[in-house]
Write a protein that binds this DNA or RNA. Structure first.
Lengths: 225, 225
DNA sequence: GGGCAGCTGAAGGCTTGCTGAAGACCTGAA
DNA sequence: TTCAGGTCTTCAGCAAGCCTTCAGCTGCCC
């Protein structure tokens, strides 16, 4: 498992490198935001451990730029203060987890392993369901070889359903994942987009890949409908 | 998602109950270690939020006894001090995550959701009972390969019985788990739905998977009937 | 036979989901 | 800046079908 540690405090960075290496991780180190970002985009890491207080480019920015660049590495932020602001903001910029300094090494390793497990189980970039193909990386969708143009929201909904093909996914979860919104948002928004999606990927082909699971949400048929 | 909060500080416990309920969780509360342990073993929760400083039986003990009892619920510990010892010990006794007091509500919700995701992915997804298959994730039910459409309530009842296949489950418990209701609700509601369930998964196949245990509730035959 | 526990058909009320339309919003070009 | 094109959200009406309640019934046990 490949880990990048971005931490300006040399002593701590070195200690982490040694400790994590001893735990079986493959560890690289960067000492400021810019070089950290460069390394993270050039190489592919499973997890990036990211200090927030960094010279040059702070942790939040590195994090959001990484996400903007399409990185799907797990990001664990190290927050110096333990105020609420830090943590909420870290999650907002796309971090997967965070840890307040000072932290114990045992805990860091536990979190890294948990994170790696989560990341590892992330769905592949291309999902094939019968003659329906959803390519998350290319952001394209084809049915029986025919390319189907989708709006950003439509694709995001389809993509999310495709990652969990065969499973029922609640509107609430779709709202959270696609809209990044709280539980008070209107589920009708999802319904409208699902409706539009069906009109494009199902109706013209006489199929029914997007199934309604009454009371539970929607399910994308594993065989494409 | 069902959450049990074990916290002796009444004011905090109440605030958590209200807040988490508003976030869409189903929340129960216990105020000391013993009753918390009892509730957690009697009912099945997705996540247990566990204070360490508890009267009667402290959080570590509740945690390790829960694990000893075979509980697979996610356990999030609330540590009062933010020393390393607490956290390492929490992880040792089988906790999945912890949070130092004082914590922000936003962060708690984020952690709970993260935990739920992790737990959800390790929970058994399908229950196979002879030729009867109940798939919780897909929310589908098949008998001898034939898909059987069920209404939300019917599925929820079946799912609950399936999770405890072979055991007698009381109507009261079904009411609590499926209907999320108090003990004053009408058990006849359960009877009506069980009746409908039998008509779909048993009668057409000449089977009797859903058995009546007079005076005690219902039992789903471990071999599918 | 009496009493109790459980079963089930029917029906009204109500929730849930779908969809067309309208206006807000965003983005890029002139 | 304004405009045009497209996208997103909100709203309201509608249809489907689910849930609960009730009442009468069966069958078990004493």
């Amino acid at each position: 498992m490949r880990v990048l540690v971005v931490e300006d405090e040399r002593r701590l960075a070195l200690a982490l490198k040694h400790g994590l290496t001893a735990e079986g991780f493959t560890v690289d180190v960067a000492h400021d935001g810019l070089s950290g970002l460069a390394r993270a985009t050039d190489h592919s890491y499973d997890v990036v451990v990211l200090d927030i207080m960094l010279p040059g480019l702070n942790g939040y920015r590195v994090c959001s730029r990484l996400r903007a660049a399409g990185s799907d590495a797990g990001i664990l932020m190290l927050t110096a203060k333990d105020g609420e602001w830090d943590e909420a903001e870290a999650l907002d910029t796309g971090a997967d987890d965070f840890l307040s300094k000072p932290f114990s090494f045992v805990v860091l390793v536990a979190r890294l392993n948990a994170l790696a497990r989560r990341i590892g189980s992330r769905a592949p970039r291309r999902t094939v369901l019968g003659d329906l193909v959803v390519d998350s990386a290319a952001r394209t969708c084809t049915r029986a070889g025919t390319a189907i143009p989708l709006t950003p929201r439509e694709f995001a909904v389809l993509d999310h359903l495709a990652r969990r093909a065969g499973e029922a996914v609640s509107k609430r979860e779709i709202l959270e994942q696609v809209w990044d919104s709280g539980p008070d948002s209107d589920p009708n928004t999802v319904e409208v987009h699902v409706s539009a999606l069906r009109r494009k990927i199902d109706t013209p082909f006489g199929r029914a890949a997007v199934q309604t699971v009454r009371g539970a949400g929607y399910r994308l048929a594993a065989d494409g409908g």
